[in-house]
Design a binder for these strands. Structure first.
Lengths: 252, 252
DNA sequence: ATCATAGTCGTCTGCCTGACGATAAACACT
DNA sequence: AGTGTTTATCGTCAGGCAGACGACTATGAT
């Protein structure tokens, strides 16, 4: 049967990225300023059209590289290199989500270690890391308390879904190590959990949990004092990707 | 800026459905026989094009109703009615997944109680419930052991992802009640877990766990002997959607 | 030297789970 | 009527794990 273009409505398909990192004890997301209408001048999640010969994951990896310079590593490969974790998040297809035309966006979630500086892509007039707390409270607040415009399109919803995915996934997986440099201390990993969950964790119980889970952390051999205080052992992410039993997120 | 069709490649967008139920102690998926090429005569997941004015969830609910007659209820609404649980699963967009053209499929996962009989939609020449075990082992086996053709397109992968989602999600949510009729016994709920996970659970510990979790089950007031043996109390799904601490899936 | 900071090792208590004994209430036989 | 089978439900006990928290260690700052 030949291809019949009249048999289905044409869609534009894009990928949007929720890129998260931890900076200064806060969970931050990468946002870009829109250079053209609609929502000109407003902040949005980075993203772009899927090309004709691209898989969705390839498109997301390409956009991530364009915006941040990060390579995405295959989720099935060991998390040893400096690449970012990248996974599909969800797909958003409300007929009115883009006023110009029918766009279906396949959102992806990327987790990255703290990066030197945002690298604006060619299609955005600016990029910055913004604390998700500011971005998500209705209307948003700048750092001085003034009202900030909410994210463009349905990107606030996409960001909220991505943040919730990250928050729940570090409970039962080793995903939190994706926020850390290749070698890190138990305390640095704990500060990641504290920033993502927005809670304080007991350093002693946390240490017992992560060092007692086989395959989660492997000693990297050295120590560091970059956090001040007593030197801490350096670890690398181990092969275990699933945490069983999970790390429990404290209530409220 | 006007709408410029040359600025992006056109895609067809479909929804495919992984509809799961428990029949005769086995986890089964709804499959339809393809009436036209490609993969003519092969089994596939039900699905169809997203219409011009439809949201993705609406399209999935419409396809579900066409194939099974089931209403999908909003996940935010209480799970009291007879509708099926429906949620977005993942999106599949390999450029070569459909030989005819570029199709992006937004797969959805539906969980339904045991249904009287499959109702073939108008666009399929047949429909049946097939045990996922048969569908997923490479090549597949019919019930007499002969080789069965694998599912069309990438539907084996989609089904595998849906089954894994269901298996993991009943651990920490009350989702297993979606496989049960509105009123059910603890034993019936246990048999759902056993069928989905493919393991045997201790009836006493299971009973203690589900009745001891506040808000999970509420007594419906009657008893039934439809399973034989001593009459069992009837329950309804309670308001709690999250199970904390989760129900642990036994290893191996 | 003293303090502040951060890391690491232990202890104790309570909760939850897995393993399993015991009893209860139906039905199917003989 | 009695016996066996099936399923439901309650209880007990030991081990594992988490939360709360005390104690000690090893750095840098003052």
């Amino acid at each position: 049967m030949p291809y019949d273009p009249s048999a289905f409505p044409p869609f534009a398909v894009t990928v949007d990225l929720v890129v998260l990192t931890v900076r200064r004890h806060a969970l931050c997301a990468l946002t870009v300023r829109r250079g053209e209408p609609p929502f000109q001048g407003r902040w949005a999640l980075p993203g772009g059209f899927v090309r004709d010969d691209e898989d969705l994951a390839q498109a997301a990896a390409r956009e991530l590289a364009e915006e941040t310079g990060l390579r995405a590593h295959d989720p099935s490969a060991p998390a040893q290199d400096n690449g970012a974790h990248l996974e599909q998040l969800a797909t958003y297809g409300d007929p009115k989500r883009d006023p110009r035309m029918r766009v279906v966006s396949v959102a992806h979630l990327a987790l990255a270690p703290d990066l030197p500086a945002p690298r604006p892509g060619s299609d955005a007039s600016g990029a910055r890391w913004a604390p998700v707390e500011e971005l998500l409270q209705q209307g948003g607040h700048g750092r001085d308390g003034e009202q900030a415009a909410p994210l463009a399109f349905d990107h606030a919803q996409i960001l909220a879904d991505g943040v919730e995915r990250a928050r729940s996934k570090i409970e039962y997986s080793s995903l939190a190590t994706a926020f850390c440099p290749p070698e890190f201390t138990v305390g640095e990993l704990r500060r990641v959990y504290e920033a993502v969950w927005g809670v304080a964790l007991d350093p002693r119980n946390f240490h017992r949990k992560v060092t007692g889970t086989p395959g989660f952390l492997v000693p990297a051999g050295g120590t560091t004092t970059r956090q001040g205080g007593r030197p801490a052992q350096l670890f690398r992410a181990g092969g275990a990707t699933l945490l069983n039993p999970p790390m429990l997120r404290p209530e409220v």
